[in-house]
Design a binder for these strands. Structure first.
Lengths: 220, 220
DNA sequence: CGCCCGACCGAACGATCGTTCGCCTGCAGA
DNA sequence: TCTGCAGGCGAACGATCGTTCGGTCGGGCG
């Protein structure tokens, strides 16, 4: 009903690429994951059929299975990409250098950038319900990431860099909730990523109320 | 797999109620909606089967249909409850009295309370994808609510009560995102609602950074 | 006491799901 | 030119979905 079939043919076929010996599939290596992530987000994972996915890729359902192992494998690949992006932030030098607040702000700002760059994949990650083993695995890794944020918020509060009198765990959840809520409305091209980073940073640490700017947010 | 069947029998049967003539169903009027909303949130709407719902209610699937019209009707009822709660806030006198910032803060604080009181129903509302007509109708009403918030944020910024130099639409989205993200982690009993309201209010308008309190948040 | 009807149930419906199978086709390499 | 095979297809599989149907049961009321 009210069909929303795009004009098929997603992306262009790699013209003459894949000259290696193990050129198993010429159609696409991970571009199908990208297509799948997009459709998953539009309809929701459970409401998305393999027919929907194959149609978005421009081939039939049975052909689709020549390139992917199954629905859950697509989900896992997309989630891995999101988690790799997020955990990659924690490996950056600036994530473990300087005061707790400096590190926290770096992570938050980079998290916004990763969110924008890997929007479909991260969106998928943030909407998991934990129905399958794959989903539970991803949720567990996500909890690890959040735990790191919580520790940093706690350290920053102890150091007197964040507001006192509140539970660091609550503050960390509010902070992560603010950042993650971007996936619900931000769309690439609608707003420069730099501007988005600045807005989120200011909102998170200075709030919405009018005030004299403290020291501005030109970090790094 | 890994069945999570609760010990059946949800709530208690109304002892001797339903003495009116049109006592069509004695089992439950809207308590089934509550059960459904809870299970919908655990598994996701599409991943929830009528078997799941009826089992959570303690009866078989076919018996379940003597009390409800269908899956989508349950969803609609739950969404109506959420929307009624949210729009009820806008009808309160304090929502249209005083300065824009005063009104906005009242709405935000009340929104947190409604979120906590109607947690399963609002959670359902915030996770819609728009696959069915019912979902699109609810999304449209939700957009109306958000538009009201956006107008208020704009007015408050024009009045100099909110930070300048940022797009009011973006600020409104960040604000709503912060508030709505509560459904992802807040659970009743884990934290007093009053404390939650205070934390969110302070986070939204003052931010996380340590600072001297401006005028405190004892509104109304 | 006997009937009536709301509550409840087992079984089955057509539809759709994710996945598999057998077959066709067009072209790259011998 | 012949051939192998990756890429693509239609049809069908068992399972599960939301929903319906016919029937049983038991307690309140005439």
């Amino acid at each position: 009903m009210t069909g929303t079939r795009p004009p098929t043919h997603e992306g262009e076929r790699p013209a003459g690429g894949g000259r290696e010996r193990r050129a198993r599939q010429a159609y696409d290596p991970s571009s199908l994951v990208e297509v799948a992530a997009r459709v998953f987000n539009e309809r929701g994972y459970d409401a998305t059929s393999m027919e929907d996915l194959s149609a978005a890729a421009g081939i039939t359902k049975s052909s689709f299975y020549h390139h992917v192992r199954g629905k859950e494998a697509l989900l896992r690949a997309a989630l891995e990409r999101a988690l790799d992006g997020l955990f990659g932030i924690l490996d950056e030098p600036a994530a473990s250098t300087g005061s707790p607040l400096t590190r926290l702000r770096h992570i938050v700002r980079r998290q916004v950038e990763v969110l924008a760059a890997e929007l479909p994949h991260v969106t998928l990650l943030l909407r998991l319900r934990g129905n399958t083993e794959t989903e539970r695995w991803a949720l567990e890794r996500r909890r690890e990431f959040d735990a790191t944020i919580t520790r940093l918020v706690r350290d920053a509060q102890v150091a007197g860099e964040l507001r006192a009198g509140s539970d660091p765990a609550v503050d960390a959840r509010l902070l992560s909730g603010l950042v993650n809520s971007l996936v619900e409305w931000y769309r690439p091209g609608r707003m420069a990523v730099d501007a988005l980073v600045a807005e989120v940073d200011r909102m998170a640490f200075e709030g919405l109320r009018a005030q004299v700017p403290a020291d501005d947010g030109r970090a790094s």
